[in-house]
């Protein structure tokens, strides 16, 4: 097992080099660089000044040269200074990460708490009214555009009923401290989390249902019944353990999603998370930030697949690595 993990990590490092190279090329090839952006419309800027600024920002180098110099710093974990924020990239990420992560993690927990039991229930009562309504609601969730759903929620709960805040993270006027502040943040997160959960729960739910259906028809479930086990145990132990196998692998793949941020939802609720920052960076051609952030996601993606492969071996004894 340890040998396997070490090998996987070594392979991952190679993959990261490839990823970073491709990323750099794509980002550099974006039309309009940072200098063009900030000087646009300013008549007083001469071509000479622009050229000097490009040198300052390191945009005068060719693709390969630029990549090598970025790589030289990156291997020392120095990702440079964000053009927009004028702060080290790692600092920027650190600053906006907590809100994004909190939002995604809370949503993920709720999604799993809803999707797995409902998926199992739908599978057990296949083709019943219960099954049809669960699947219909799940599909509705998948199909709902998040901006539209968020707008409806805001209209109803923030404007209409006035029970939940419209946007933002904290109530700036109240100036809560300690526990009250946490409760206030929670209060603000209700609507965004609801949007996340409703639009995200469908996929996992349908996946659980399909897997459960397959497992319920398996011979070993019949064996479990033939032993005389009560239905509760047949489902909860014999069927569930087998349904869990594909779900666990899916969860590993969800890890990078926890950090990548949700551009639209964060925007609508005016939450300053990584999604917002990323879209800003793309618009302005903030190369160091984009490289740093995307590499961060790449590392998480590779870690996520590694984690799901390891979890796979944990839940399924047929899978062994050597």
């Amino acid at each position: 097992m340890r040998q396997y993990i070490v090998r996987r990590i070594l392979i991952s490092i190679l993959v990261l080099f490839g990823v970073s190279f491709l990323l750099y090329i794509i980002i550099r090839l974006m039309p309009g660089d940072y200098v063009a952006n900030i000087t646009a419309g300013n008549m007083n800027v001469t071509a000479e000044m622009e050229q000097r600024m490009r040198e300052v920002y390191g945009l005068d180098k060719g693709l390969l040269e630029g990549y090598i110099s970025w790589l030289g710093d990156a291997v020392r974990l120095d990702f440079g200074i964000s053009f927009i924020y004028q702060k080290p990239v790692t600092e920027v990420i650190q600053r906006y990460l907590p809100i994004t992560f909190a939002l995604a993690a809370i949503a993920m927990v709720f999604e799993m708490l809803l999707a797995i039991p409902l998926g199992i229930l739908a599978a057990r009562k296949q083709y019943s009214k219960m099954d049809y309504s669960i699947v219909a609601i799940a599909l509705m969730g998948i199909s709902l555009p998040s901006f539209f759903f968020a707008a409806i929620l805001k209209r109803v709960f923030a404007i209409g009923l006035g029970v939940l805040p419209l946007s933002g993270m904290v109530n700036a006027r109240a100036g809560f401290e300690g526990f009250a502040r946490i409760m206030d943040i929670g209060h603000h997160l209700v609507l965004p989390v609801t949007v996340f959960v409703i639009t995200g729960v469908g996929g996992l739910l349908r996946y659980t249902r399909t897997n459960m259906l397959e497992v319920l028809n398996a011979d070993y479930v019949r064996t479990a019944r033939a032993k005389g086990l009560p239905e509760r145990k047949v489902i909860g132990k014999h069927a569930f353990r087998n349904t869990l196998i594909p779900i666990v692998t899916l969860v590993g793949g969800m890890i990078p999603g926890l950090f990548s941020g949700a551009v639209i939802t964060e925007g609508i609720f005016a939450l300053e998370g990584l999604g917002q920052i990323a879209i800003n960076a793309v618009n302005n051609g903030d190369i160091p930030y984009l490289m740093g952030f995307n590499m961060f996601l790449a590392v998480l993606t590779l870690l996520g697949t590694l984690v799901s492969d390891i979890l796979y071996a944990v839940v399924d004894p047929r899978v062994r690595y050597s």
């Binding site: 033939a226 005389g228 086990l229 353990r241 399924d316």
Partner: peptide, 25 residues
């Protein structure tokens, strides 16, 4: 019936490859 199944009347199935649960010893 659950008290009888497996206790007083037991069944051997036709497909030994799939009648045992793969995740338990």
């Amino acid at each position: 019936m659950e008290k009888i199944r497996g206790n007083e009347i037991a069944m051997i199935f036709q497909e030994p490859m799939t009648t045992l649960n793969p995740v338990f010893t």
